[in-house]
């Protein structure tokens, strides 16, 4: 199924691989301490000393972008993972068994998805307080309903297909049918949902940072840095550009990767 010759896949894999490599290296080494401040070098322009220049505290933007990309990637992956895990469980079971449990859970699902996601995030953060792990938790919870919905629809559709009926006749256990037989078949759809979820997670983190409730400073995250950078758009456009560039690369890489894996064809 995976066509590694596909152009989208190759470009996506290239971008994602590059970002992962940079982030991994960043875990071990960055040119500067990302949080170290320097009053003498505030707002330095990009150059040999500071590849992407420095910010309003004289911190090295390149080092912060590298670390911030890591933080953002962690938030996006974990929150999507959390949403996907529970979405699979809830959607899979309700889609497979149907009945009143399905009906009730789907109504709950509908009523939660009716709230704008940013609003839910605001409320959840007000309850949990902000911070990297609480953001993961909040976004993860917000993603559950949409994943559950997609999984449920696909599972319900697959259930009616011949191969599932055959497996049943052969006496295969329900759980095995659901997770071994059906799940691989809905993978392409899930991939596309994951890519979109990843995009949404990155954007949600940025929006929350804009409203002041994102990752705790001074630790860098791309969203927080972008909302800080907007204040210096005129004086230090490189600040916003380098952060924005990293965001685009992360999202683009994942988007192309999922497109290349065939996820897009049946979104």
């Amino acid at each position: 199924m995976i066509n590694t010759k596909d152009k989208s896949f190759r470009v996506g894999a290239g971008i994602t691989g590059f970002m992962l490599l940079v982030i991994l290296i960043g875990l071990l080494w960055t040119p500067y301490d990302p949080n170290a401040m320097n009053a003498a070098e505030k707002m330095a322009s990009p150059g040999l000393r500071h590849l992407f220049g420095t910010d309003n505290f004289g911190r090295d933007i390149f080092s912060r972008v590298v670390q911030g990309s890591g933080a953002t990637l962690l938030i996006a992956l974990c929150s999507v993972g959390l949403g996907l895990l529970f979405g699979l469980l809830i959607g899979g079971l309700t889609g497979f068994y149907g009945g009143w449990v399905d009906e009730v859970l789907m109504r709950l699902n509908d009523s939660i998805t009716a709230f704008p996601s940013l609003l839910l995030a605001l409320v959840l953060i007000a309850v949990f307080h902000s911070g990297k792990y609480n953001i993961i938790l909040a976004l993860g919870i917000i993603f559950i309903p949409s994943f559950a919905r997609i999984v449920r629809m696909e599972v319900a559709r697959q259930k009616a297909l011949d191969y599932v009926q055959n497996a049943r006749l052969m006496g295969v256990k329900d759980m095995r049918i659901l997770f071994v037989h059906i799940m691989p078949n809905i993978l392409p759809v899930l991939l596309s949902a994951v890519a979109i979820g990843f995009n949404n997670a990155v954007l949600a983190e940025a929006s929350m940072s804009y409203l002041g409730l994102g990752v705790q400073p001074p630790d860098p995250s791309l969203g927080r840095m972008l909302s800080e950078a907007q204040t210096y758009l005129l004086r230090a456009p490189w600040y916003a550009l380098s952060v924005g560039g990293a965001i685009v690369l992360l999202v683009l890489g994942f988007g192309l990767l999922s497109e290349g894996l065939g996820g897009e064809s049946r979104a």
């Binding site: 929006s207 907007q230 916003a240 924005g244 685009v248 192309l256």
Partner: peptide, 21 residues
């Protein structure tokens, strides 16, 4: 196609600031 991907990746508030400028 790629432009689409790029636009999707711009946070709303930042797009707003860019449009204002």
């Amino acid at each position: 196609n790629p432009l689409n991907q790029v636009i999707m990746a711009i946070p709303t508030f930042f797009l707003g600031i860019l449009l204002t400028y």
